[in-house]
Design a protein around this nucleic acid. Sequence first.
DNA 1: GAATTTGGAGAGCAGTGCTCTTGAAAAGTC
DNA 2: GACTTTTCAAGAGCACTGCTCTCCAAATTC
Lengths: 221, 221
Amino acid sequence: MRRGIIRAGRAQLADRGAAGLSVREIARQLGVASSAIYRHVSTRDELLTLLVVDAYEDLAESVLSDPATDPVNPAEAFPAVARAMRSWAVGHPERWSLIYGTPVPGYVAPAQRTTGPGTRVMARFVEILGHDRTPEEETSSLSPAYREELAEGMRDLDVQAPTGAAADAVEVWLSLIGVINAEVFGYLGADLARHGEEILERWVRTTARRLDLEGATEAEA
Amino acid sequence: MRRGIIRAGRAQLADRGAAGLSVREIARQLGVASSAIYRHVSTRDELLTLLVVDAYEDLAESVLSDPATDPVNPAEAFPAVARAMRSWAVGHPERWSLIYGTPVPGYVAPAQRTTGPGTRVMARFVEILGHDRTPEEETSSLSPAYREELAEGMRDLDVQAPTGAAADAVEVWLSLIGVINAEVFGYLGADLARHGEEILERWVRTTARRLDLEGATEAEA
DNA sequence: GAATTTGGAGAGCAGTGCTCTTGAAAAGTC
DNA sequence: GACTTTTCAAGAGCACTGCTCTCCAAATTC
């Protein structure tokens, strides 16, 4: 039943968006009274949380299952993660929106249930950028408070990397999300969104260069 | 009356979010019947459009009125724009969401009415990055289709700059939005969001460096 | 076999966006 | 000045929403 609810919710998400998500409609789709849904899902927000977690897991699965994202080879793994993220995002725009779009108003994802699945890809990302970096590399520009926050974050993510790498990772990660969002949400209008792949590839190239990850980037055509 | 509607809408946006926006509530606030609203605003989507345009204008006003954003001095103007954008965003999170968050489902902003105010800041941005760049600078890596699209975009924006600069501007622009979104939407959790300003400053520094805009970046403490 | 948990049905409440008819002022016209 | 026309608001009503409540049947447990 819960599975059915998630499945129906996912379908509905796909063609009506997060705000159009209706528990009555889900009930209808399942051939059941609307009140029956509340037997399994206490509230609409709870349903949203279910779908958020579901989306996080699917995204993580989709990205991390790609062998190219193995952190031992950053120059290859970094572009692979970026591409896998984008692919999933354009393939599931509504679910992507659920994660990286406007938080549904009034609703805050309960950190305790969402940060777990939500940070798996991010963790991999930090690992990749932290690979074979020397710890002492120019972390000087970080404020103590921020550095401490980063260290704590890495403990939560169960990842070991120099703090400087983590700070870089944050920046690059957010930047990547911005580029993907532009395509999914159409920041630049439909015309430019059509070149999403090229924009991402350019972004990958320039970012890899600035991170000194030259190498496999010219493997693509 | 229209002014009143926008004012009330803005207020409501601020404390209930875009999806919580209710025309009945606006009517109540204005001491008027809900049906009266529809005399001035044909539909809820129309109301959203009004608020989107209003937000775009306010943001553009807020950013462009800062004299530091004058494009003649890119090394100073670039950080100024980034900071002004962030300030506005954290000052008006709900309105920022309206613009750079998930498109409200089922609703697409009518390009013809929103792209005007929506692109003013972007145009300034391209100007800044295009300043004193030589036209022939490595535009080679752009596909012809993308280059053409960029050229057309610049015609729409009424801006002159080498295509390579425009491509850079797009990337940097989207990246900036990503960084700001992270703080406003809390991608990294509340703890890290607290360091939004520092993250932005770091982003400004690394980005300026990669764009060869050294100089005034050390003006800040 | 009895007691208890589980899961669903259906009515109902308060809220929503939106439409329709009604009606009163305000503006324009002869 | 009287008459027509436009402007704008009111209020009822429709179909929808999330959610709660009471009722009731089937499955589980003891």
